[in-house]
Simulated scan of single mutants.
Amino acid sequence: MELRQFQYTLQIAEERNFSRAAEKLHIAQPSLSQQLSKLEQELGVMLFQRNTSSVELTHAGESFIVHARKIMDAVEQLRQEMDDISKLRSGRVIVGSMPITGSHLLPYVLPVFKETHPGIQITLLEDTSLNLEKLTASGGTDLSLLSLPLQEPSLTYVPIGEEQILLAVPPGHPLASRTSTSGGVRMEELQEEPFIVLKKGQGFRKLTVGLCQEAGFEPKIVFESNNIETVQSLVAAGMGITLVPRFIARAKRSELIPVYVPLAEPVPSRTLVIAYRKGRYLSKAAEAFIDTFKETLTSRMGQD
């Protein structure tokens, strides 16, 4: 068996089509078919069931794909480790990010990283928290910016910062005048309030609902959105209230601005982390990105 045969088989399994797989691999389709047949003859089993309309994995093929992925991942990690040894100033890091949190933090992190490590390429993937955990567990990303708790047991993480949670209310709301000196707003006081939250699949929605449940009530959700900016605009327009991470609290130059009010002690917060798969080799480039993220985040927290 050859490594390229593993690669070819994985691509066919992903595309379920020989023509598309050959195109992605930049080889001729007859060559791809020939290599697969050679592999199947060596193994003594059929890996794919072919017909005129589809290509499906056989039982043997499904087992082969599981092991082939592990082998190719191990080979890639070995190459990366050897590359780090020979070229300390080069590398590539695939970073997963929650769109909302990433859009507020990465514009500060990436320029600093690019300036200090110009030879390292960063590839950014944005998705929901749930999908990012799956991507990171399967090796689709090297690192992912997430918040605790993590659902995927195969992941580990490096904490990079603690972020205070604020209450956002419309201007003129009875709670808008609360300050930290007056003790802030207790979560129990929000039981009858209409909540505007992010849609399911986003980590901060789960945190919001969890804080309400800890306070003994289910939030009365009146609107949902995929976009935290839309959520804040609806709050500012008087349609309800919401919880907002401090880093995402809208800049004062925005037209529709909610009033941000501190919550009572113990002040809720979320822990931002850089997650990666347990046992995965972290390249020097990945370690440098984590360090830059932590340093930049600490600097931003000091300015706020």
Rank of each mutant, 00 (worst) to 15 (best):
P245V: 11
D84A: 02
P266D: 01
A215D: 09
P219V: 09
L272Q: 01
G210T: 06
G279M: 06
V55R: 01
E189N: 11
S254A: 15
V169K: 02
V95A: 04
L106Q: 05
L166E: 11
V235C: 04
P266E: 02
K294M: 12
R205F: 00
M46H: 12
V112N: 05
K200L: 13
Q29M: 03
T292K: 06
K284N: 09
G210A: 10
E15N: 08
Q213K: 14
F113D: 07
E40M: 01
T179I: 07
K87D: 13
H117A: 03
R270Y: 03
M187L: 09
V209D: 02
R69A: 11
L143M: 10
E81R: 15
I274H: 03
C212N: 03
A251V: 08
P159M: 10
L36P: 04
L150F: 04
S299P: 11
V112D: 05
H59R: 13
I248K: 00
K70R: 13
A68L: 08
V209A: 05
V267K: 14
Q77T: 10
A288F: 10
G279V: 08
E23K: 03
T156F: 03
D291C: 08
G96W: 00
T298K: 15
R16V: 13
R16M: 14
T136I: 08
F223V: 11
R79C: 12
S19F: 05
S90W: 11
F204V: 06
T9D: 04
A74E: 13
I248R: 01
K294W: 12
A68Q: 14
L198F: 01
R280W: 00
G172K: 11
G203S: 08
D291E: 14
N131I: 07
